[in-house]
Simulated scan of single mutants.
Amino acid sequence: MARKFRGSEDVKVDGKGRMSIPARFRRIFEAGDPDWKPSERTRMIVVYGPKDWQKLEFYTVEAADRIDEEIDQLPRGSKQRLWLETLMNGMATEAEIDTDGRLVLPQKLRDKIGLEDAAFFTSKGDFVEVWNPDAYSEASESLQDYMSQFPPDFDPRSFLSAASAAEPHEG
């Protein structure tokens, strides 16, 4: 099983679109690039999505390959497959982290999400979301609204019990 991304971090973006990828995230991108060697650049996949997306998604090569395998299981020509192929392949690009741990984000992608001098990285398990920090604050309000319906001492891990109860257990 592949390692998961964990944590959130603010990073600086310079005028040329260079940003340092936090070391803990770089290690996962390196591990998820089957062709990576310590003296070489690390490949990753950037999904920029449809025009209304205010974020980018950074995937390891292996995570993107696993998603492609799942897409390939859908019926050819189905709307679901076409949508996912468009999102994960047509609205995506390959990028590289240089040996100094930096990524140069093209101007087109910085403009799309309004990145200027800072970016906010937040982990989502098998990928990292990258946001303009102000846009992230606004977007996270809907999750905050959802969370506020539960009492302060509610443990969201209890949602997991329902998922594992549905799976047969071997004894």
Rank of each mutant, 00 (worst) to 15 (best):
P50A: 10
M44L: 15
F29C: 10
Q107S: 13
F120I: 04
A166M: 10
M147V: 15
L143W: 04
E62A: 08
G17W: 14
P50I: 03
I21Y: 11
V47L: 06
F120M: 00
E9S: 13
R43S: 15
L160Y: 00
K108C: 07
S137N: 11
T86M: 05
R41A: 15
Q80N: 15
A92Y: 00
I21P: 09
M147P: 11
Y48N: 02
M19P: 10
M88C: 01
P152I: 10
V128W: 11
L103C: 10
Q107P: 04
G77C: 01
T99A: 03
G171M: 15
D33L: 03
Y146A: 08
R27M: 10
M19F: 12
A95M: 11
A95F: 06
P50G: 04
T86C: 01
A63W: 01
P22H: 04
A119E: 08
S39C: 01
R66D: 11
V46A: 11
F154Y: 02
T93M: 08
D134S: 10
P151N: 11
F58N: 00
S148P: 01
T93C: 08
D14S: 00
R41D: 14
R27F: 09
M88N: 03
F5T: 10
R102L: 11
D14Y: 09
P22C: 09
F120Q: 00
Y59G: 05
E138W: 11
I113Q: 10
P38M: 04
L74R: 14
S142R: 04
S164E: 11
T122W: 06
S137R: 15
T86I: 02
A31F: 01
L109W: 09
P38V: 02
L82E: 02
P22M: 08
S20M: 12
A23N: 14
G49S: 09
E141H: 01
T99L: 05
